[in-house]
Write a protein that binds this DNA or RNA. Structure first.
Length: 603
DNA sequence: CTAGGGTTAG
């Protein structure tokens, strides 16, 4: 490296070789190949070359090998600015924002100078790694070097200060600019909105000399965020041109606000649909408890969507499967997920665990759990709760031990599963030990759902008086779930006095819920107190609400069918009941006596 | 070689 500059300019052969390496690196798709190319580069002595080195680092970054890139970078005696920048970009693209910021600190003592490409990247990395102190230093550095008026730098600064919640500082950057383009305007509008001040965002929007589709969408999203769909819609109708993203924003807004008709309308009317649109539709149905519709839309997406489902799609679909018990579809999604290599995605992995658990195939849930190469608190909670709900209480408890030994800190959700497992096994004493351990060992303050678990634990163990005094000593006001748990226990143990007390509270808390009346009525019925049954029936009629009949769903031939007791809506009703009758006869011939006390006798 | 707007799990 005696005269690198003249070499580059004067040697056309070397220039061709450099170009060759750069194009090889650009098409490189694996680390093995990368190392082969690197060996060639070294034999040509070009590893520190001003053009080849950045290209090499960029390739490392693309393949997620930033450590490898750094090794080379540290050996370059005087990296040029482009080489520094490509390192920063690599860290940023690999979400190693902290590394970018730290490396930027070393640029001070280097020969190369940061340029207008450097600052936006570093400021973004500061914001992303919450290094706001460093961010301000970088701001000073950029100002000193005369980049105050650069719109790229300003945009990143406005974003950073907004993210920090310092909208005044963001506005100062905005105010000091000379020529503000639409991107800078959008950044400051977005800043106000993300600080919760949509009104100021709106004022700036009205002042802006130019508005494009992004600026419109930012403002609309602001209104959607504050659940003001009316103004969002007004703006949406007024904006001069809409792109798919703006349509999707409206779709998701209506879905989040539980307006099924309007989000379906958005989806139907939008001129172009991408994977976000389909995910919005499917996820919208899931958010609104329309799980069959979610699965139907997913099938429609596969057939006519012209887009490839992604991890977001799979999570929404798996969630619908869990809620419906649609195991076949869930399994299909699992195969599909394997084929696109979901393992890196915890959302999908966790959704799969939940799907198998909720569909009753707990072995598969455990298998998926064990195959995850990374687990988070949600993975552990899903499997612990899945085991607990499925009556594998001892497994739930040993999974809990494994969780602790693998260094995962349990949280409130974990303890819901643990307490549930104790309830299942009637482990009253252990339940109380775990309840105490929440606070003592994990500084997790028990929430109302944990108190609910404890009431259930005591109630199902038949300790109704203890359950009642536990409720009376709760640090918070008991809600309907708590009293309903007690009422349920009263049914099991036929305790009328406590049941009447619980119902009284329940009528105060949810006067519209007929299920509570039904529960007490069933207790009277069990004890043959028919006058009381009749009295309650009148009381319930006076509320004007009827209990919705419970409905079951079953997955059959790729679709989900729902049915009620004595349902005759299905087109194959006759054959279904014929089979059912046959099964009953078969069961009776083996000595089975059906328990019909609860059937067709409800109020 | 740079900037502003999207969806996911217990």
């Amino acid at each position: 490296m005696v005269e690198p500059l003249t070499k580059v300019v004067l040697n056309p052969v070397q220039r061709i070789i450099e170009e060759k390496f750069i194009s090889l690196l650009r098409s490189c798709k694996s680390c093995e190949r990368l190392y082969q190319i690197q060996a060639q580069i070294v034999t040509h002595g070009l590893q520190h070359n001003d053009f080849v080195a950045p290209s090499f680092i960029a390739t490392c970054s693309r393949l997620g090998r930033m450590q490898h890139a750094r090794k080379l970078f540290d050996q370059i005696p005087e990296p040029n600015t482009a080489t520094w920048n490509v390192m920063f970009r690599g860290y940023s693209q690999n979400e190693l924002h902290r590394d970018a910021v730290v490396l930027f600190g070393k640029l001070n003592r280097a020969v190369a100078m940061p340029n207008c490409f450097t600052f936006p990247m570093i400021i973004k990395s500061c914001a992303k790694s919450k290094g706001f102190v460093e961010g301000e230093e970088v701001h000073c550095c950029a100002a000193k070097r005369g980049f105050k008026l650069n719109s790229f730098v300003a945009t990143s600064l406005i974003d950073m200060y907004s993210m920090k919640g310092c909208i005044e500082d963001a506005y100062k950057v905005f105010g000091e600019m000379r020529d503000r383009n639409v991107v800078v305007w959008t950044a400051i509008i977005n800043g106000y909105i993300s600080c919760g001040d949509v009104a100021s965002g709106r004022r700036l929007f009205d002042l802006a000399p130019e508005r494009d589709v992004v600026m419109w969408s930012v403002l609309i999203s602001g209104y959607i965020e504050m659940k003001n769909m009316v103004v969002a819609r007004e703006l949406f109708d007024k904006m001069p041109n809409r792109d798919t993203m703006s349509w999707n924003a409206m779709l998701n807004g209506y879905a989040a606000n539980r307006d099924v008709e309007l989000f379906e309308k958005m989806f139907d009317e939008m001129p172009e649909r991408n994977v976000y649109s389909w995910n919005g539709l499917i996820g919208g149905y899931v958010k609104n408890d329309l799980f069959s519709a979610a699965l139907e839309s997913f099938k429609r997406m596969l057939v006519e969507g012209h887009v490839v489902p992604n991890d977001f799609t799979l999570v929404a679909v798996l969630s619908a499967c869990s809620r419906l018990g649609a195991l076949d579809m869930g399994k299909w999604v699992h195969v599909y997920a394997e084929s696109i290599g979901y393992k890196g995605n915890l959302f999908v992995g966790n959704a799969l665990i939940d799907m198998y658990a909720k569909c009753g195939v707990i072995e598969n849930a455990v298998a998926v759990f064990n195959c995850l190469d990374r687990k988070d608190i949600i993975s552990w909670n899903t499997i612990v709760n899945g085991l607990a709900i499925h009556g594998h209480a001892p497994d739930a408890l040993s999974m809990f031990d494994r969780m602790k030994s693998e260094g995962e800190e349990p949280d409130g959700v974990t303890f819901v599963g643990i307490l549930f497992a104790c309830t299942h096994m009637g482990l009253v004493k252990d339940g109380f030990l775990y309840f105490k351990s929440m606070v003592d060992d994990y500084s997790t303050v028990p929430q109302i759902e944990h108190y609910g678990c404890m009431v259930d634990l005591l109630g199902r163990a038949g300790l109704l008086d203890k359950a009642l005094s536990f409720i009376r000593n709760m640090p918070m006001e008991p809600d309907a779930v708590i009293w309903a748990a007690l009422l349920g226990a009263c049914r099991i143990y036929k305790n009328v006095e406590i049941a009447e007390l619980a119902l009284q509270r329940l009528i105060e808390l949810e006067p519209k819920n007929p299920a509570n009346f039904v529960m007490l009525s069933n207790i009277y019925k069990d004890l043959g107190k028919w006058e009381d049954v009749a009295r309650l029936k009148v009381a319930m009629r006076d509320t004007g609400f009827r209990k919705l009949p419970g409905c079951s769903v079953i997955e059959c031939n790729d679709s989900v069918v729902e049915f009620y007791s004595l349902d005759e809506r299905h087109s194959e009703t006759e054959s279904i009941y014929r089979v059912l009758k046959g099964l009953t006869v078969l069961l009776r011939s083996h000595g089975y006596v059906p328990n019909l006390t609860d059937v067709a006798q409800g109020i």
